[in-house]
């Protein structure tokens, strides 16, 4: 019975570590692009709001 659990935890460990390593690379690269896109979207939204309502400064 212990052999079963050892095998299961060994597979889970190497699978988990492996997939996390790959995911880390993907998220690091993709996340960098998303950060740029998020800041651009926010800037665009603020510009559009300014065009509609006139200039508005930060609330605080």
């Amino acid at each position: 019975m212990t052999d079963f659990w050892v095998t299961l935890w060994t597979i889970l460990w190497f699978f988990g570590l492996g997939i996390f390593s790959v995911l880390s690379v993907l998220v690091t690269v993709g996340g960098g692009r998303d950060v740029v896109a998020m800041l651009a979207a926010l800037r665009q939204r603020h510009l559009a709001a300014q065009a509609e309502n006139g200039p508005a400064g930060p609330p605080a």
Partner: peptide
């Protein structure tokens, strides 16, 4: 930051990787 939506939910502009 311009309004509460920016402050609380990042202007709802967060994509998958981020």
């Amino acid at each position: 930051i311009r309004d509460m939506e920016d402050y609380v939910v990042a202007g709802r502009s967060v994509r998958t990787y981020l």
